[in-house]
């Protein structure tokens, strides 16, 4: 399968402060890829390197087959990016911003923009300065989607959106992905990754913790064990050889026991901690 994003040993330092270190992962075409990590993990830094907003010290990034350092403009033509901060020119109207984004691309996106505004219930005649965070997010979504890009990069897209709009947003993404686009979703909301993503990369303190299929992540050697031992209820995450716990339990008064796969949240939290 063709890779749409290929990041190899990416290192970005802000002076002496940590940015990201030796980050490597790739995203396949047509994938819905989750990019997970707590605040300050280096997700936005990685994305900003991918889009050429910031320089990086070492490593290489290829997006849609092109090196970021030499082909930024070509990459941006094919990318729909939604930043975590949906900020626009305060004095402009929504329709002016949407039209400007399309015109700069030299495209007439009016039909797609109209459809998106309708589905997101966005009033295009309002001024940006009058919009709430949620409505600014909607403008950002329209600007990222109206030109039907091959690759979507969303950085914390759902913060500020109400649950209905979040659902509509993910419906839209699914439709574009079904039509052949690829989506990279950077978030710290576990449920979004669990629900919508096929693969996930987990970042922590500037380092990549793991890249895996979401479905594979729960298939670890860890087990959630709930039992009543010697009259006391115990609930813990066990890591290691299951024979060890069998040995430990021998000769004890076990009245109830449940051994199950850990939840995805628990797996994620393990990387977070």
């Amino acid at each position: 399968m063709e890779n749409v994003i290929e990041i190899s040993n990416l290192t970005k330092m802000y002076g002496k402060a940590r940015g990201v270190q030796n980050v490597s992962f790739s995203v396949e075409k047509g994938d819905m890829f989750g990019f997970l990590g707590p605040n300050g993990a280096g997700k936005s830094t990685t994305i900003r390197c991918m889009l050429g907003f910031i320089n990086y010290q070492s490593g290489s990034i290829k997006v849609l087959g092109q090196d970021v350092k030499s082909g930024t403009q070509n990459i941006l033509k094919e990318v729909g990016y939604m930043p975590s901060e949906a900020m626009f020119y305060q004095s402009a109207k929504v329709k002016e911003i949407i039209k400007m984004a399309a015109n700069v691309r030299g495209m007439d996106c009016s039909k797609e923009a109209e459809m998106l505004c309708e589905r997101l219930q966005l009033d295009v005649d309002r001024k940006i300065s009058d919009l709430s965070l949620g409505n600014r997010k909607k403008v950002s979504i329209v600007c990222a989607m109206q030109h039907k890009p091959r690759l979507f990069i969303f950085d914390e897209p759902t913060s500020g959106l109400d649950p209905l709009m979040q659902s509509e947003f993910f419906e839209l993404i699914k439709e574009y992905v079904n039509a052949g686009a690829t989506c990279m979703l950077s978030t710290h909301v576990l449920s979004e990754v669990k629900k919508y993503c096929n693969n996930v990369a987990i970042m922590k303190e500037g380092n990549l913790q793991c890249v895996n299929k979401v479905s594979e992540l729960t298939k670890t050697s860890s087990k959630r064990i709930k039992m009543v031992r010697d009259g006391v209820y115990e609930d813990f995450l066990f890591e290691g050889d299951l024979n060890d716990i069998y040995k430990e339990l021998q000769g004890r008064d076990i009245t109830d026991i449940l051994i199950e796969e850990p939840s995805l949240d628990e797996v994620f939290m393990k990387y977070y901690e």
């Binding site: 403009q73 070509n74 901060e85 900020m87 626009f88 020119y89 984004a101 700069v104 600007c143 990222a144």
Partner: peptide, 14 residues
């Protein structure tokens, strides 16, 4: 200053 740089520079203009 107004945090509009990410919007502006996500457009395909050098």
């Amino acid at each position: 200053d107004a945090h509009t740089s990410e919007f502006l520079f996500s457009l395909p203009v050098s």
